[in-house]
């Protein structure tokens, strides 16, 4: 128990890094995922092909490889930098890799949501004179989102947990990194381990409950 108290502040700081990553990546993943799904259902073949390729490649690549690629390939070899501050640079490289990775899952969740929207909805929208983009934005996507709130919750939960491997790419002092670090110096500590598990569960469980509740509340009656 003493280790937990001693390293508590560091662990907390690390955990806040996890939360910060999670929040930023969630927003970006939802935006990117929506753009990807719009590409995948668009009437323009080039956009459709590009969307499909991005999703299939990224989704089937292990996250740690994506993180490594973003840190080593993009940053070191190609010289992509977000900031002169090494920590900030690492942070945004991780954000980029994790957001696009999660975005592909958001995209696929949304695509299955689109499949639950009856054809007649899009037809009625087009018949009124809405353009393709308006139809997607005003009629199809809002209904698709409501249909997949619970699966999107799972994507966000996976994303939050995945922030613990962020260090593989960018050496961020996230909670898991701090934990390994303390284990190195003081030996494995069960309280620290359990403390972190509880901290993550304190975030992810409510998200699961909340999205489950929201899914029921916003369900589209047909």
């Amino acid at each position: 128990m003493d280790e937990l108290i001693e390293y508590g502040p560091d662990l907390l700081k690390g955990f806040l890094v996890n939360l910060q990553l999670s929040a930023i990546c969630t927003v970006l993943a939802l935006v990117l995922g929506t753009i990807l799904v719009a590409m995948r259902v668009s009437p323009i073949p080039v956009l459709r092909a590009a969307g499909t390729t991005v999703v299939n490649v990224i989704r089937n690549t292990p996250l740690t490889l994506l993180l490594a690629f973003s840190a080593l390939g993009l940053s070191d070899t190609l010289g992509l930098t977000f900031s002169d501050e090494p920590y900030d640079n690492a942070f945004w490289l991780v954000v980029m890799a994790m957001s696009i990775y999660a975005a592909t899952f958001v995209c696929e969740a949304l695509r299955s949501g689109i499949n639950t929207v009856p054809m007649g909805q899009a037809e009625a929208a087009r018949a009124v004179g809405l353009t393709f983009m308006q139809t997607l934005r005003l009629i199809i996507l809002p209904q698709a989102f409501r249909a997949v709130i619970a699966p999107l919750g799972s994507v966000v939960i996976a994303l939050i947990k995945n922030t613990t491997v962020a260090q593989a790419g960018g050496l961020l002092a996230d909670a898991a990194f701090v934990m390994y670090d303390t284990f190195d110096t003081t030996g494995v500590s069960i309280p620290i381990f359990i403390g972190l598990v509880i901290a993550f569960m304190a975030v992810t469980l409510p998200i699961g409950w909340f999205t489950g509740w929201l899914a029921k509340r916003l369900a589209v009656a047909r």
């Binding site: 009856p118 004179g129 353009t131």
Partner: peptide, 24 residues
Amino acid sequence: EGKALAKLRSEVGMVFQSFNLFAH
């Protein structure tokens, strides 16, 4: 296609067998 088609559609109303009201 495009804007011109959307404009034409806005001038022709359509009522479907299955109503197709926007459910949300």
